[in-house]
């Protein structure tokens, strides 16, 4: 059984990686200057298959691609982790206010004249503050519906603060305002990419090291304790990791909707069982990249919508599927 699970897991992860590679090739090849896969590879190697190709591929399309992948992976991992430790498929950082907290704090600092590291730091502070509020006001060791609903209220609160900050900001350009409202990977910078990549790698390392503790977390708290786990401590630690991942993703690309919410359930659906954190990260990366391709090339409009609008609208379908399926399973078992 376990061997079969592992084989299925490897198959799913391999399939996702192949999908990401294919989408990545599209992302590097499509655009005003269309390049064939061979030309893309040549341009990546520094050759000059077509006029300007190295600059277009390496300077313009590659940073956007890498940012989309890293932000998607960070959000997917953050969401699946929170859902797993709180044992509630509705508890994701974009539902319980962590993403909104990061985004509101980031905008407040921008309005106050900050930039760069100050904004990233504020986003981190906002995410942790929202998580701490939800934890302390939600009570009961962050388990149960109360934590989630308190988080929803915090999300509304943070959105209000964000709305206030936006009215005070000199963000005349609708694009930058919408960046903080809906999320976009359209303005990548290598320092941002390095920050997201570094935090993602660090958190992934922590999670691999704490794998045993997380596995025990799948049982109820009493069982987890009997198995030598520390459920509440692990939950609080996991929420901090979730906040860090969400904050760097939001700081670099804004609050891209529903990726954190949907990646975990999709990954679990494909794997068949388990929290499937690694698979969720791959799903998140593929989702953001795919949605960004849709936003760039499939929307018939002079305006190119930010990727967060696409994930937000598509998220409705995942949400409905989740609500319908989530019920059927226990019934089938009974």
């Amino acid at each position: 059984m376990r061997a079969r699970d592992r084989r299925r897991g490897r198959l799913v992860d391999g399939g996702l990686l192949a999908l990401i590679a294919a989408l990545g090739m599209l992302a590097l090849g499509l655009g005003a200057v269309a390049l064939s896969p061979a030309e893309v590879v040549a341009a990546l190697l520094g050759l000059d298959p077509a006029p300007g190709a190295p600059f277009i591929v390496q300077g313009v399309r590659l940073p956007r691609l890498v940012l989309a992948l890293l932000v998607g992976a960070a959000l997917g991992l953050a969401g699946a982790l929170l859902q797993a430790v709180v044992r509630n498929p509705l508890a994701s950082p974009d539902i319980v206010g962590i993403a909104q907290g990061a985004s509101a704090a980031g905008v407040l600092v921008i309005v106050a004249g900050g930039s760069g590291a100050a904004v990233s730091g504020a986003a981190m502070g906002g995410a942790l503050l929202a998580a701490a509020l939800a934890l302390s006001l939600g009570g009961r060791g962050a388990i149960g519906a109360r934590f989630v609903v308190v988080g929803v209220a915090i999300a509304f609160l943070a959105n209000g603060v964000l709305g206030y900050a936006l009215t005070r900001a000199a963000l005349v350009d609708a694009g930058s305002a919408y960046f903080w409202l809906v999320g976009s990977v359209g303005s990548p910078s290598w320092p941002d990419i390095a920050l997201v990549g570094g935090v993602l790698a660090g958190c992934a390392g922590l999670l691999v090291a704490g794998r045993r503790l997380l596995e025990v977390q799948a049982f109820d708290d009493a069982t987890a304790r009997a198995l030598g786990g520390h459920p509440v401590t692990v939950r609080v630690g996991a929420i901090v990791v979730t906040s860090a991942l969400t904050a760097v993703a939001v700081g670099a690309a804004g609050p891209i909707a529903f990726v954190a919410f949907a990646s975990g359930p999709i990954a679990r659906g494909m794997r068949g069982r388990g929290p499937a954190l690694g698979t969720a990260a791959l799903v998140g990366a593929a989702a953001v990249l795919g949605a960004d391709l849709i936003a760039q090339h499939l929307i018939p409009s002079t305006f190119q919508p930010p990727v967060g609008l696409i994930t937000g609208a598509l998220g409705a379908l995942v949400l409905l599927a989740l609500l319908v399926r989530g019920d059927r399973r226990p019934e089938a078992r009974a």
Partner: peptide, 21 residues
């Protein structure tokens, strides 16, 4: 309420998409 807020988030995104295009 959580389900409702997710429905709201999805509809709001769809709304913004229409508005911006």
């Amino acid at each position: 309420v959580v389900a409702g807020s997710a429905v709201t988030a999805a509809l709001t995104s769809a709304n913004s998409l229409l508005l911006l295009s």
